[in-house]
Computed example of a mutant assay.
Amino acid sequence: MGMRALGSLRRVRHLNCGTFRARLGGPALVSHVVVCEFEHGLALIDSGLGTDDVAHANSRLGVGFRLLLPTLDPAEAAVTQLDAMGFSAADVAHIVLTHMDLDHLGGAADFPSATVHTSAVEQSSATTRTDAAAKVRYRAPQLRAVKNRTSGYSDFPDELFGFAGHMVHDSVCAIPMPGHTAGHCAIAIDDPQRGWLLHAGDAFHHRRAITGQSSGRSISMVETALADDRRQLRENQRRLADLAARTAGPQIFCAHDPVQFRALADSAR
């Protein structure tokens, strides 16, 4: 079933599906997942950490991610939070990823009937790269869980906010934003209550990156260390800052800023 078969978007919710605290210090970070409630089912934007990631952290996440001190709370898994809302795993028909890093893909294993959408470049990068950095960010057990249900799009014929994009649905658009990973995308959602939102994934890690302020030395170090292409990362941060400055632009947020997450989660209640 294509995403358009879900009908119109009725409601948007925001979940934290994985808290962690980097050893560099600072506030606890979140894994921001957006739940899109359509007429005929649900779609997630990113999926956070899943129940298997929590139960088998060493094998699923590896030593590298454990250095970020994840809370590993099973109550944070998207499937657990959706169950508390009255939804089942089968209600999730689609998962649209910003990218396939372990803290964005892991929860997809809890929704075995969902089609996973990502850019073709990201899909190729995640499944073919064998270098040390790729082995840290792209985890084989997570990739196996979605191997036969991942749809990779390579065309971006649409336009939104002056950016090239791929309309996965009339209300959901993937916008290529490489830098953090080769095939990273920001995902725009047309929230019927608040207008356009832009989930920028890991295009930045702190809200100050889109206000022209310094995001702080520790955050900048993390962004640089994790970037696949630092030049592209900084260029896209400039583009996002310009977009954020527009009066009629979307509300832009990243995957891990707890302040941005809490503001959106509270406003969606």
Rank of each mutant, 00 (worst) to 15 (best):
G216K: 03
L6I: 05
L67T: 11
R60F: 10
R230S: 15
A182Q: 12
A174T: 00
A78E: 11
A55D: 07
L49I: 09
Q142S: 08
A186D: 02
V92E: 12
T118N: 01
S171K: 00
T247C: 08
L9P: 03
P178Q: 03
P74H: 08
A84R: 06
S113M: 06
D83L: 11
S88G: 14
D73L: 05
L102W: 00
H94L: 06
V33G: 08
A248R: 08
P192V: 12
R144D: 14
F20H: 12
A268I: 02
I45L: 05
L105K: 01
M177G: 03
A255N: 11
S113T: 15
A209N: 10
D101N: 11
G62N: 01
R137K: 15
S151T: 06
T127V: 07
P74E: 07
A174E: 01
P192L: 10
R4K: 10
D110E: 10
L102A: 09
R139C: 07
E122V: 01
A84T: 11
G212W: 06
V92I: 07
D53M: 03
D242E: 09
A43I: 01
V54M: 03
A5F: 03
R207W: 11
T80V: 15
R4A: 13
G64V: 03
D191N: 04
S220L: 09
R208G: 00
V34I: 15
P258Y: 12
T181D: 09
H205W: 12
L67G: 08
G25M: 06
R66D: 11
D46F: 00
T127Q: 13
H94N: 14
H180K: 05
V146T: 11
G41H: 03
S151M: 09
D257G: 04
Y153W: 12
Q251L: 14
C17D: 01
R194D: 14
V35M: 07
H184E: 13
R11Y: 05
D103A: 12
T130E: 13
A43C: 13
R207E: 13
L61H: 10
Q193N: 09
D202V: 00
R262T: 12
V34D: 02
H180I: 05
G106A: 09
L42V: 02
L9E: 06
A164P: 15
C36P: 01
G179N: 02
R208Q: 13
V121D: 12
E37H: 04
S124F: 09
A89H: 00
G195T: 08
V172R: 06
V79G: 02
A126D: 03
E159A: 09
L15T: 01
S151Q: 14
F20Q: 03
M167F: 13
D103Y: 09
D190Q: 10
A255Q: 13
K135Y: 03
H117W: 15
H184I: 02
D91R: 01
L97F: 07
C185A: 09
D101I: 06
V222K: 00
R13E: 05
E39W: 06
A93E: 07
D170K: 11
R149G: 04
E159Y: 02
A90G: 07
T80P: 01
M100A: 15
H169I: 08
F161I: 02
Q142M: 14
N16L: 01
H94F: 05
G86K: 04
F163Y: 10
A77R: 03
H14F: 11
V92S: 04
V30I: 13
V30S: 02
A225C: 07
L82M: 12
D52M: 12
N16R: 00
